[in-house]
Design a protein around this nucleic acid. Structure first.
Lengths: 237, 237
DNA sequence: TGGACGTAGTGGTCCGACCACCTGGCTGGT
DNA sequence: ACCAGCCAGGTGGTCGGACCACTACGTCCA
């Protein structure tokens, strides 16, 4: 339709790449709202003058990025574009990182997690606090490593949610993806670090209960910092 | 080849999704090293028992995620899997976010940027400091908004690099993507905020020069916080 | 010896067909 | 008049094949 004001470099090498940019632009400009349904693959391909195959690759890419959602038999829709949708790919980074980068990721997590926990201490409600405690006791009441990790994840997730910044919570979620944590914890727990983890979690909970942001920040930073230091020494061997 | 130990839930709905998981797994398990070349699309499709079309969609998705790199006429290669490669998609989040989420993103940036600047104050070398100063003076010596934004970006990028955490630098890079910053600054600068920005940048530079982490942290937090507050009031209207 | 050429092989694009699934309307009964 | 069930059209998902654009590398000629 409006091919008038084409950008400086519209020829993004491949046809598919161009399609990705075009669709992204439509969303950025507000021509496509969250939740809205797109034309069919066949129509979209025709509109941009390309084959359905190339258009499908573009759609698939945007689907993986969490921008679009394809429902078999129904159509293609724009996601709600919430932090969780778009930052899901963040988990891929954690899963594929190793060595020194794992330490860097933990460093980022330490910074964000300590701040999030501090914010949570100031803002957390009674209901949210109860939820946190639920996972805390559940974590201490089992020996199954899988279950412990699951409750540990939920423990920190509830805290991040209570901080009131969905974007931050989504990033932390990615930095704590299941496979990422499982890899690190395998060795960490072998050194009898479980008792220490319990103490650290208790300290965090205490700070939340007292609505003490500074104590919460310190406790969370120490908690993540412990794992970080352990991993650092592991790598230097 | 080894179809023996198939995972618990290998049927990820679509064939393409399965291919994505398989390739990701190969990399995570170390069967594919960074920089290594993959089999051809045709061979890969045959190995996983699917059509080339479906395999291409999987490859395209991983390409967009920064995990793979396709070179026309040559082959498909695993990227170096560095922070910059994988976190490039982070910019998409910033570009497609608006309203309250923009404030959340700035909040995350404030937290990370202040810490990064503090780290930089402690670690920055003479050469890096000279580079920072170069962009600082260049920024103050022009009236072209485009150029100002470019040097502002470079200013913060150099600082993030001096902090010594590539992952953090890559995230901050995404949080400061060109389009993101351009959108916010358009209105911000109209209110004569340029003089204030200059002062804040000077304060950051002074802290770096003095190798004073705490001063650097405060200056950076205030700098980002100003924009954050401005955006917050904009939204409440 | 070295550069130009050519060729085999790779990713990029397109097409057409068919399958799997969802949706909404129609049909038939109550 | 109502509702349950069926059914057909439309949609995304998959497939196979063909051709193009480009690269890499070996070959041949000057």
């Amino acid at each position: 339709m409006n091919e008038t004001q084409s950008e400086a470099a519209p020829q993004k090498a491949t046809v598919t790449q161009r399609a990705i940019e075009r669709i992204k632009a439509m969303i950025a400009e507000g021509r496509l709202e969250p939740g809205q349904r797109l034309p069919t693959e066949r129509d979209l391909a025709a509109q941009l003058g390309m084959s359905r195959s190339s258009m499908r690759e573009a759609i698939r890419a945007l689907t993986v990025l969490g921008v679009l959602e394809a429902r078999h038999g129904s159509g293609i829709y724009v996601t709600q574009l919430e932090a969780g949708d778009l930052l899901e790919t963040f988990g891929v980074v954690a899963d594929l990182s190793r060595g020194p980068r794992l330490v860097e990721l933990l460093e980022v997590r330490r910074i964000l997690e300590s701040t999030a926990t501090a914010l949570a201490a100031a803002r957390i409600t009674e209901d949210q606090l109860a939820e946190v405690e639920k996972h805390l006791t559940a974590m201490n009441g089992t020996d199954d490593p899988e279950e412990i990790i699951a409750h540990d994840l939920a423990f920190h997730r509830e805290i991040a949610a209570a901080a009131g910044n969905e974007t931050m919570a989504a990033i932390l979620e990615g930095l704590s993806s299941r496979t990422f944590r499982a890899r690190v914890w395998r060795g960490y727990q072998e050194e009898g670090a479980f008792a220490r983890t319990r103490r650290e979690h208790a300290a965090i909970h205490r700070a939340l209960l007292a609505h003490d942001p500074e104590a919460a920040r310190a406790a969370a930073a120490a908690h993540v910092g412990e794992v970080e230091q352990w991993l650092r020494t592991q790598l230097s061997e």
